[in-house]
Design a protein around this nucleic acid. Sequence first.
DNA 1: CCATCTAAAATGTATGGACAATTGAAGTCT
DNA 2: AGACTTCAATTGTCCATACATTTTAGATGG
Lengths: 280, 280
Amino acid sequence: MYGQLKSGGFRPVMQADQAKKGGGKDSQAGSRIPLYRQISDNLLAGIREGKFPVGTFLPGELDLIDRFEASRHTIREALRVLEDMGLVKRQRGRGTLVLSTEASPAFVQMVRSPSELFSYPDSSLFRLLSDDRIEADKALARELGCQAGDEWVRISGLRTLGPEGLPICWADVYVIPEYGSIAQRLGGGSRPVYEMIAETFKESIENITIRLTAGVLSEQKAEVLGVEAGSPSLSVSRFYQGRGGRIFEVSISEHPASNFSYTFEFTRGWQTADHWSWSN
Amino acid sequence: MYGQLKSGGFRPVMQADQAKKGGGKDSQAGSRIPLYRQISDNLLAGIREGKFPVGTFLPGELDLIDRFEASRHTIREALRVLEDMGLVKRQRGRGTLVLSTEASPAFVQMVRSPSELFSYPDSSLFRLLSDDRIEADKALARELGCQAGDEWVRISGLRTLGPEGLPICWADVYVIPEYGSIAQRLGGGSRPVYEMIAETFKESIENITIRLTAGVLSEQKAEVLGVEAGSPSLSVSRFYQGRGGRIFEVSISEHPASNFSYTFEFTRGWQTADHWSWSN
DNA sequence: CCATCTAAAATGTATGGACAATTGAAGTCT
DNA sequence: AGACTTCAATTGTCCATACATTTTAGATGG
């Protein structure tokens, strides 16, 4: 049940480094890098070398205590490192399952709230121009990723910079009929629709997919946005997935290309990247 | 030094839930949700309520032991939860610093390798059309975010789907002169330039910024891409930041709008999201 | 006044023990 | 065969204790 390794396995961690000065309690294996790290490195190596293939379980904690001659606390600390790296999954009553051989993400983009995905200025306002119930035709179904014939409530409007300020974009927000009544509630406020839906209907946003495409502005939209008809636009589609993976809102906004760009950033490591250094 | 709270602070965690059947050792405060979680929740509430403002230190572990009447191990476990959430930063010798009042990322996009940010098919090829050394004029400087007059090596080419396949995009890759010789090495291969630079010059990619804008294709590019001149394009600029934050490569690729969109996805939580449930 | 030493405070590392809760398989009964 | 019980294995939670390492502030001394 333990993958391979049975007795010929590995050796306890040793690291004849430098003598510690104080001379602790008894043996304590003095070394600059902590025991639990040495153990986690050892296990990590084992995982990468295939001694513990993905899908199998690591030896149990009691087992590791014998092998590494360390306390359970230390063993658990080592396993925690692997768990934090996303390499193993620990399950009470079952064991420690090897999930992957590589630390999960090399680059991450993090946002605290979906609104940071918008990056509209706080002073922007949404001015509702129309809302109606529609049935998706083939073209719209393709855009929304739904079936032709599906029903949506479409809320159209303009996002502007301040009450009478410059128009930022034209927005079509498609909401499932169940949540359609949200249209009545957004009275020229600046709060994003998904947020009001989440609050009003106790929906929880599990996933957001963003798609960017370029296009040309229709005559109508161009006029409202105050640019020349036929000028290029950056179109941002956002798909909001709620509980159970159901897409409850799709928002499509068209920005005049001349004054809009969409920027985001990825940073190496994740979190602090301070915790482990382990090779590279 | 401890923000506020001095003596009027908070009370030990209590939760008269259900009686445990076995009857453990002595008191052990039987409850369905673990003590360390109760403590971390309590501390979390304190942070959110402003009892421990951002920038101040939480009470020390010994202090918390008294307040919550728990062992140090349990206290540390609770603090670890907060640390994993990115709310506090623990520093040996200093204390536990409150970093933020909200759990860091609500939505994360992760990629294992920068190449997943491209999402070009594997079969795509880069055909080099020209490379030359240039000096950034004002317009280019604005695009690249550098000073006018800065020198770059510009590598221009076409990314196609297969040897004689459809053109995907026109690409201008700007590389700092130091790494300019990379142009000689990319002989029609499919490997991204940043990857070859990282390998050849032992550069390490610390950060990638991506900017998307819409525009219109110039006559020259439209012809090469086989579309009508003046048709809209999606322009993707990628800024690669290496060691020390230096931008060593900027790649600008223009895709015909008709057949290209840029999609990415954010998922709630990070990692397993299995570890804590704590409210919402 | 500045450098240096010292000590206190804080978190990090480690060992020991005990009991709880979960899982899965083996065994038992109908 | 199927439902149920029992039990061993395994991880989770918690306690008590000790020493190590780092940081900061205060005392000391030139």
